[in-house]
């Protein structure tokens, strides 16, 4: 049986990357992984870096490497606001490894409990996640 479809818009500061009807959205909030189907309860969630999957159907899935952001579910549809949404095929492993290394250096050079430390931890987690996504796509 075909599932109900709903409108999903993915917005980044650099513009809209996706706006279409889907059957399911799969992403991750700070609380945990979440799958959103049609008629989901209204929600405001904070997103963590992960692979964002938009299921047009079981076989037709659009994927993005998603940075930090927010998701808002309302009766009109789902709005995904993320700082980055990149095509996994366009991720540059070398570049990501550089960034990850830099974040690790920053992490070890500053004291725990400072904002600088929290920020480096955030960077490290983001680039690690992106690297994992890039690895899956390339293999």
């Amino acid at each position: 049986m075909a599932k109900d479809r709903f409108q999903v818009e993915v917005l980044t500061p650099e513009g809209e990357v996706f706006n279409d009807e889907v059957e399911m959205v799969s992403t991750r909030t700070t609380v945990g992984s979440i799958g959103i189907l049609a008629h989901h309860q209204p929600l405001l969630g904070m997103l963590e870096p992960t692979e964002l999957r938009l299921y047009r159907s079981d076989s037709d899935v659009v994927r993005y490497a998603q940075g930090e952001g927010y998701v808002q579910v309302s009766p009109d549809g789902v709005l995904v606001l993320v700082e980055e949404a990149q095509d996994p095929g366009e991720l540059d492993r070398g570049d990501l490894q550089d960034k990850q290394r830099k974040a690790e250096e920053a992490l070890s050079s500053c004291d725990e409990g400072t904002e600088e430390h929290r920020r480096a931890a955030r960077d490290k987690r983001r680039w690690e996640t992106f690297l994992r996504i890039a690895g899956d796509g390339g293999a």
């Binding site: 209204p42 405001l44 904070m46």
Partner: peptide, 19 residues
Amino acid sequence: EADSAHHSLVEYEPDPEEI
């Protein structure tokens, strides 16, 4: 306006303070 009409039913993940 459209957003605030139903905000009492909205679920937050995590708490609104954290967001």
